[in-house]
């Protein structure tokens, strides 16, 4: 059972923004996911959530009574949540931590003062909950990175980080679902496809799921990559 204070304001002409008065946490994530489902059902609107905000997209038209809309949203958010557990999927993601795929790995190891086997052991030893998707289509915002692997982003971002790159930026770890410029340190690469716009369910990941990483060697990487392309 939990309850949060919140503040509702408009974002632009058509959307409502709900700001939760709390720092990010796993409990808040579960609450957000439950409220997100309720809101999108009641208003038939698209709801985007982040660490501590909910955006109710395009829920306002010229005939909308804003005060009554806000009252309705508030009432819904104030309903106590009894079952606070969201059972997301656990994804086991193979990662090849090899300088063949990671131009940054050796430099990163020097900077965090760890050997590469130590980095692999620490990185694969945790479960990372997916808070939400953003930045790129299918990019998961993950929490719970071991403090020993924290490292500030690069001062000069890389022009292109390859699709599948597993990287570390500040206190976070993440996977790039597509080629993109980026300022994170790449420590490995997964041969798994994370986002396919031609599929009915384009994203492998959903908010509320959990990711674990396991190490594979270069041969295993090529084998999985080949079978994906068939």
């Amino acid at each position: 059972m939990c309850q949060y204070d919140f503040h509702i304001c408009r974002l632009g002409d058509y959307s409502l923004l709900i700001q939760i008065d709390s720092t990010p946490s796993k409990d808040l994530l579960n609450w957000l996911l439950i409220k997100k489902g309720d809101l999108s059902k009641l208003f038939n609107a698209e709801v985007v959530h982040t660490y501590n905000e909910l955006l109710l997209k395009d829920c306002i038209s010229i005939t909308t009574n804003i005060d009554s809309l806000i009252n309705q949203v508030s009432a819904l958010l104030n309903v106590r949540v009894s079952n606070n557990d969201c059972n997301g999927v656990v994804h086991q993601i193979p990662v090849c931590y090899s300088s063949l795929y990671t131009p940054d790995l050796e430099e990163y190891a020097l900077q965090v003062k760890r050997t590469i086997p130590e980095i692999i052991k620490i990185h694969t030893n945790r479960e990372y909950p997916i808070y939400f998707l953003g930045f790129l289509p299918g990019f998961p915002y993950l929490e719970n990175l071991d403090a020993r692997l924290h490292l500030d982003r690069k001062s000069v971002p890389s022009r292109s980080i390859a699709r599948g790159s597993v990287a570390i930026g500040g206190t976070q770890t993440g996977i790039y679902p597509q080629d993109s410029p980026g300022g994170w340190h790449v420590i490995g690469r997964t041969p798994i496809s994370l986002f396919d716009a031609t599929k009915a369910k384009p994203s492998l990941f959903n908010a509320g799921d959990t990711i674990t990483f396991y190490a594979i060697n270069e041969r295993e990487y090529e084998k999985i990559a080949m079978s994906n392309n068939l």
Partner: peptide, 10 residues
């Protein structure tokens, strides 16, 4: 595109 912002799609 409508309905895919929650997956990070512009």
């Amino acid at each position: 595109r409508e309905g895919y912002a929650l997956l990070g799609v512009p």
